[in-house]
Simulated assay, not measured.
Amino acid sequence: MYTVYGIPNCNTVKKALDWLNLHGIQYEFHDYKKKGITADKLGSWAAQTGWEALVNKKGTTWRQLDAAAQAEVTGEKAAIALMQEKTSVIKRPLIEKNNKVVALGFEEDAYQKAFQKG
Rank of each mutant, 00 (worst) to 15 (best):
A39L: 04
Y111Q: 05
M1G: 13
W19Q: 05
T74I: 13
K14P: 09
N56C: 10
Y5A: 01
L65F: 13
T49S: 08
T3C: 06
V55E: 02
A78F: 00
W45F: 12
T61C: 02
Q112W: 10
W62F: 13
K97I: 09
Y27F: 14
L54H: 01
Q84F: 08
P8M: 12
V89R: 00
W51Q: 02
A79H: 03
L65S: 08
F29E: 01
D18I: 12
E108D: 11
L17N: 04
K77F: 05
I25E: 00
R92C: 01
I37F: 02
T12L: 07
Y111F: 15
E72V: 07
M1Q: 13
A78N: 02
I95M: 10
K113S: 14
Q70P: 06
A67E: 15
P8F: 13
N9D: 15
A67P: 09
K33D: 13
E52M: 11
V4N: 04
V89T: 09
K86W: 06
T38R: 04
V55C: 05
I25Y: 02
D18V: 13
A53F: 09
Q112A: 11
A79E: 03
M1K: 14
A79F: 04
K58A: 14
D40E: 15
K58P: 02
V13G: 00
I7A: 05
R92Y: 08
L20T: 05
Y27C: 10
A68P: 00
P8Y: 13
E85A: 15
W19F: 08
K15F: 06
E107Y: 11
K86R: 15
K77I: 09
L42R: 02
G75Q: 11
A67G: 11
P93F: 00
V102A: 10
G6I: 03
V102L: 12
M83T: 07
Y5N: 01
D66A: 11
Q70C: 09
W51T: 02
A39Y: 05
I37W: 03
T60R: 11
L17T: 14
G118N: 13
I25Q: 02
N11A: 15
V89A: 06
Q26F: 01
A68T: 12
K117H: 12
D66I: 11
K14D: 09
Y111R: 07
Q48E: 11
I95Q: 07
Y5F: 14
G36F: 08
N21Y: 01
Q116V: 14
V73T: 01
T12S: 09
K41E: 09
E72K: 12
L82E: 01
W62M: 10
E108K: 11
P8S: 14
A69Y: 10
Y111C: 09
K35D: 15
H30T: 06
F106E: 01
V13R: 04
V89H: 03
V73S: 00
K97N: 13
A47G: 12
N98W: 05
L104Q: 01
E28C: 11
K100A: 15
K34G: 03
E52V: 11
G43C: 10
R92Q: 08
I90P: 03
V89F: 03
T49F: 02
L94C: 06
T87Q: 07
